[in-house]
Each structure stands twice: as structure tokens, then as C-alpha cells.
């Protein structure tokens, strides 16, 4: 039982983080709070991916003594999995871009209605 929890708890923490962000995205009425929630959600997804790449006993995915040791045998198990890191570099950029566009839209909304509360904006549009 303890082993089971120890081997899974990191995923559960990320899922709880995701759900905090998810709740803020759909539950909060303030636009900036929604954006903060979006960021928490996406960051938690990124943490989740990075934790897939982990290997016990593995080190950073950079070859040691790479140059001049062409004949060395490289063990896959001694380096952590680089692929999730690469995917998340892309996902981080996507996240930053989404954040940028979302904030640009919020600035437009604020300049027009002078408020960031969803109900007040909807009232102003009607």
C-alpha cells in the first residue's frame, strides 16, 4: 500500500494542481483569475509530462565525456528520458503564446468596458 502511494503520489499532486486551475478557469468570474487558472492548469500538465521522463538512477540527458570517447558504450538506463522534456519545451512556448493572446484580448476588453468582472462586461454588452 505504502509502495503504491509512494510510486503514484506525484501524479496525484499534479492532478490536484490541474484541477485547481481547471476550477479557476470555469468557476471564477474575474478574467485575470481565469487566466491564472489557465496557467496553473497548463503548468501542471507540463509537470506531469516531465515526471514521465524520470528514471531512478538516471542523470541529466547530456552525455558525459562526449568528445574524444567515441567508443564508449552508452546505457539507456543511465540517462533520463529526453523526449518528454522536448515535448514540454514546445508546450511551454504554446502556453506562453496562449497567455499572451489571452492577455491581449483582456486588455482590449478592459479598454472598452473599464472592468474585468465577467458579469459587468456581459451587462455592458447587452
Amino acid at each position: 500500500m505504502i509502495d503504491f502511494i509512494v510510486s503514484k503520489y506525484n501524479y496525484w499532486i499534479y492532478i490536484i494542481l490541474m484541477m485547481i486551475g481547471f476550477y479557476a478557469m470555469i468557476g471564477k468570474r474575474n478574467l485575470i483569475k481565469k487566466i491564472i487558472g489557465m496557467n496553473i492548469f497548463q503548468t501542471a500538465v507540463i509537470l506531469f509530462y516531465v515526471s514521465i521522463g524520470c528514471k531512478k538512477g538516471g542523470t541529466l540527458p547530456i552525455l558525459e565525456h562526449a568528445h574524444g570517447h567515441a567508443g564508449q558504450v552508452i546505457q539507456a538506463s543511465s540517462y533520463i528520458n529526453p523526449l518528454p522534456h522536448v515535448l514540454m519545451l514546445t508546450a511551454i512556448v504554446v502556453m506562453v503564446s496562449t497567455l499572451g493572446v489571452a492577455i491581449a484580448i483582456v486588455i482590449m476588453i478592459y479598454l472598452k468596458y473599464n472592468t474585468l468582472e465577467e458579469d459587468e462586461i456581459l451587462k455592458a454588452i447587452k
Partner: peptide, 22 residues
Amino acid sequence: GWGNPGSPASLHVSPRYITKTL
């Protein structure tokens, strides 16, 4: 489990990235 070196994610595609990169 977390950090399990025998998980499919560590065995299927990624070993080539690690061993053949140089």
C-alpha cells in the same frame, strides 16, 4: 510507478535518442 526505468515510456522510443545521439 514514478521513476521506473522499465516503464514503456523509457523503453520504446527514447533509448535510441540516448544511445545514438552522438
